[in-house]
């Protein structure tokens, strides 16, 4: 009896692990994609000048 329940536990753990792997493969990480898009768009459109100054501006302040 004890042996049987052990096998059931093992099967449940394996099934859970398998479902976890499938989940990772199927779902598109929408939030992560949005963050990635924002980073690239901010760079391309230069929306956050503090992050990286455009080369064309601010010729002053050089010593």
């Amino acid at each position: 009896m004890r042996r049987r329940s052990t096998w059931i536990s093992a099967a449940a753990a394996a099934a859970f692990a398998l479902v976890g792997c499938v989940t990772i493969n199927i779902y598109f990480p929408a939030a992560a994609a949005e963050r990635a898009a924002d980073r690239i768009i901010d760079e391309v459109w230069q929306l956050k000048p503090d992050a990286e100054k455009p080369r064309t501006e601010k010729p002053a302040a050089k010593q």
């Binding site: 753990a13 859970f16 692990a17 976890g20 792997c21 989940t23 990772i24 990480p29 939030a31 992560a32 994609a33 963050r35 990635a36 980073r39 690239i40």
Partner: peptide
């Protein structure tokens, strides 16, 4: 196993490689 699954899922959700 559950913890391992959760960690892997968190890693997959964390960031997209750019």
């Amino acid at each position: 196993t559950i913890l391992l699954g959760a960690t892997a899922l968190a890693a997959a959700q964390a960031n997209l490689e750019i």
